[in-house]
Amino acid sequence: MGAPSEIRYCNLPQMPERSFDMPVGPLRMEAILMMAKKWVNGTKLKFSFFEGDSFFTPATDSNGNQTKLFWEGSAEEKEAVRNAFRTWKDLGIGLEFEETGDHLEALIRIGFAKGEGSWSYVGRDAWEIPKGERTMNFGWDIVDDQDTVLHEIGHAMGFPHEHQNPKAGIVWDEDAVYSALAGPPNYWSRDKTFHNIIRKISPDEVQGSSWDPNSIMHYPFGANMILSPEKYKTGLSPEAGLSNRDITWVKQFYPKMDKRTFTRLKAFHSEIISIDAGNQANMEFIPEESRYYTIRTFGDMDTVMVLSEVRNDENVYLSGDDDSGEDRNSVIREKLFKGKKYLINIRLFYKASAGDTCIMVY
């Protein structure tokens, strides 16, 4: 990400804070917020690059002339991104990554608009972005900057900035931070600096019980920006690459999937969901007749449920429902066809008691 004296920082897009329409207890809220932006494990995150001169951001140069910041990147930059996706995947995680030439079918849509900063939407926030827009951008040459690429892909998988972890105990020299970020190479406003550095994220969104200053999701900082802890007054430079805790946490949220453990569902037969909060149940269903089916969870719990069709060994998303923080259960109604294979993935955010929770297709 550069030496501390010339650091260019990731600039996260601001999204509305999660709100609830009904009272939600602190333990339930903690579980929901930690999992809210994570994908259902086994999701294939298709990524694409914008090509050609049709995709750009209008801009004004230093002379007041109108110009364009094109989203297309070089062949070397695209290969650097592919390499970073492989680095994450080679850890043996359950998420899949696949490049597609059609940005309309991609969940991660990547641009290389120079001067716009590097950023990514966090996890499932990408669902909310129109298909013609980027969900990730690299605003400087990243050919020899693999850490920036790994960092932005980490955001795309649902991981927040580690230096905003309230458990870090960082006390900023706020004037020094605002001053440093207002100048080159970032030229950030106070609001942007606050959002990306000074602001503490909710404790409920934090991965784990401790701070990892070597996380790929942590910025480096120059001297005099941090007042405490004392050892970082002279600067903080995370080690290159993924830290041990990065690897532990991505494997915890997205463990490698074993299809032999999938449960086979039968119509009108309830199947108990016996998993702990944060974990996932995976089911298969092969209809014996073509018709509309209802897939519903039962019990006092918060879940996100995703329905996919298996086509040529690829899981094609059909529908999903997220009941977290609501007084209801996840439900999907979809027309399914005789003899085809469907997958139902349920990520459990929170369960109110040790009582039975289950799923039924009918």
Rank of each mutant, 00 (worst) to 15 (best):
V149D: 06
D147R: 03
P160L: 08
R82M: 08
G278Q: 03
G183Y: 06
N345E: 10
E284P: 01
L236V: 11
K231F: 08
N63L: 10
G299N: 08
K37F: 06
L318Y: 01
L104P: 02
D144A: 01
G132E: 10
R28H: 11
R260N: 15
L91K: 03
E76V: 01
E30P: 00
W88L: 04
E17N: 14
E79K: 15
I197D: 14
I170C: 09
N279Y: 05
M217C: 12
L33T: 01
D322M: 02
F253N: 11
I226F: 08
K233M: 10
R245Y: 03
P160C: 07
A126S: 14
E289M: 12
W249H: 07
D53K: 09
N345G: 09
R18I: 13
H163S: 01
F253R: 13
E105R: 15
L336C: 11
E205V: 12
H103V: 04
E230A: 12
T57M: 10
A180L: 09
Q164M: 13
A352E: 15
D258L: 07
E96F: 07
R134L: 13
H155F: 11
A277K: 02
D144I: 07
N329Y: 01
S330Y: 00
E271L: 08
E17A: 14
I273Q: 13
G320A: 10
P185S: 13
F349C: 05
Y317M: 12
I295A: 09
K78M: 15
G355D: 14
D145Q: 08
D323A: 15
M35W: 00
L307V: 08
N83F: 04
N329D: 10
A281Q: 02
F50D: 03
P4N: 00
F20H: 11
R245K: 13
S179T: 11
H269A: 05
A75N: 00
G320Y: 12
W172P: 14
K167D: 00
S270N: 01
E309N: 06
M301R: 02
A59Y: 09
G208W: 01
K89P: 00
I295Y: 02
R328Y: 06
K233Y: 00
P130N: 03
T57Y: 05
R86H: 13
Q252G: 02
D191A: 13
R28Q: 13
P229Q: 09
G101P: 02
A180M: 06
E77V: 03
A182W: 11
V310S: 03
F97G: 00
F221M: 14
V250Y: 07
T263F: 15
I108A: 04
P229M: 12
S19N: 13
E17V: 12
E314N: 10
S210L: 03
